[in-house]
């Protein structure tokens, strides 16, 4: 099978290239970058030195059509104008931008910009295999999730429909590393300004809220609105979502374990982390960065009726490139964990 990537110069693009280069059943034959056309990929991604001499090609649907599948690693808004040409030449697409995650063009416009191809929404499947494995098998477009959304949705999905959950007071307090902002730099990302901060940059109205509310509402089949606050912390990779959920009645651990195990017991990339000892008793990005795992754990508050769910993942892998490759495996009929069930170096 042949795969290509449009716009592979960013951090997500770099992880996509890495994951596809080590994928045993897919060959990465086509990579484009408007800014770095003709340049060696390894000059943009130093970890690929000694690994590949691939160069960035120009963007052309004809060249792309030699592939079986194309990943879109360009920013939102650019993607929506390229994807139609790729579909037209019969390609399957995995889009890592936000352009095909949302079902409602007005909500899309509120968080991003006017959408030029809303007619394609119904061809797109939200790129979380844990929720949409069957639909992804026949999807033409898989919309890989936003990293924050992936962490929050995976943490809440198993219990959001339980009757003991108060759906009106759900808070997601997320901590994320600096690679979440991609390669564009600013005075805010200038090291003396960025190192050692706990910066509440998205205290309200974070863009990923749209897809979190969308997916949770689809599960409970009525509109849900949660609160999301994001903080930039001293990590490069990694997200920890601390999800505060109020309970409508007293419950025990097993009332949480049951739905969690029911939904995720057979999921290769979900790990339950709730242990009595050691440095990694609850989900912590430190134990998951570099891998395609999402670690999920929880604690029940004994003083007030509150459940705290912890969900940790690597924003560039399970939060982007890893879920994208997982979707590709499903779309191309390849065993889902192929090229992804790899232990990360630890500690990094």
């Amino acid at each position: 099978m042949k795969a290509g990537i449009v716009g592979a110069s960013g951090y997500t693009g770099g992880d996509l290239i890495r994951l596809l280069l080590i994928h045993p059943e897919v060959e990465l034959t086509y990579i484009t970058s408007r800014r770095y056309q003709g340049k060696y990929v390894k000059h943009l991604h130093p970890n690929l030195r000694g690994i590949t001499d691939l160069r960035f090609d120009e963007l052309s649907p004809e060249k792309a059509s030699e592939c079986d599948i194309i990943f879109m690693a360009v920013p939102h808004k650019a993607s929506m104008n390229i994807v139609p040409d790729l579909l037209a030449v019969g390609l399957k697409v995995v889009d890592l931008s936000a352009d095909f995650r949302l079902k409602d063009p007005d909500i899309y416009e509120r968080y991003y910009c006017p959408h030029t191809h809303p007619e394609l929404f119904e061809k797109a499947v939200y790129g979380l295999p844990e929720l949409y494995r069957d639909e992804l098998k026949k999807a033409e477009i898989a919309a890989a999730p936003g990293c924050m959304a992936a962490s929050a949705i995976l943490g809440l999905a198993p219990i959001i429909a339980e009757k003991f959950i108060d759906r009106d007071h759900i808070i997601i307090d997320a901590k994320i590393g600096s690679s979440g902002g991609g390669k564009n730099f600013s005075f805010a990302s200038h090291h003396p300004e960025r190192a050692n901060v706990v910066r509440p940059y998205g205290a309200v109205g974070h863009r990923h809220l749209a897809e979190i509310n969308q997916e949770l509402s689809l599960i409970v089949k009525q509109p849900i609105k949660v609160g999301l606050s994001t903080h930039a912390v001293s990590m490069v990779r990694g997200i920890l979502s601390t999800i505060h959920v109020f309970l409508t009645e007293p419950i025990e651990n097993k009332d949480i374990w049951k739905p969690f195990r029911k939904m995720y017991n057979k999921e290769p990339f979900i790990r339950f982390v709730k242990q009595p000892s050691g440095n990694y008793r609850l989900p912590d990005p430190k134990a998951v960065i570099g891998s395609n795992f999402c670690d999920i754990g929880f604690m029940l508050d004994e003083d007030i009726p509150r459940l705290v769910i912890l969900s940790a993942l690597d924003n560039l892998i399970k939060g982007a490139a890893g879920s994208a490759v997982q979707c590709m495996n499903i779309m191309l009929g390849i065993e889902e964990t192929t090229g992804l069930l790899i232990p990360a170096p630890h500690p990094m």
Binding site: K254, K258, R261, F272, K274, P276
Partner: peptide
């Protein structure tokens, strides 16, 4: 023999 953890209900 089957066993179920009483903490995390893993079988």
């Amino acid at each position: 023999m089957k066993a179920t953890c009483i903490e995390c209900y893993f079988e």
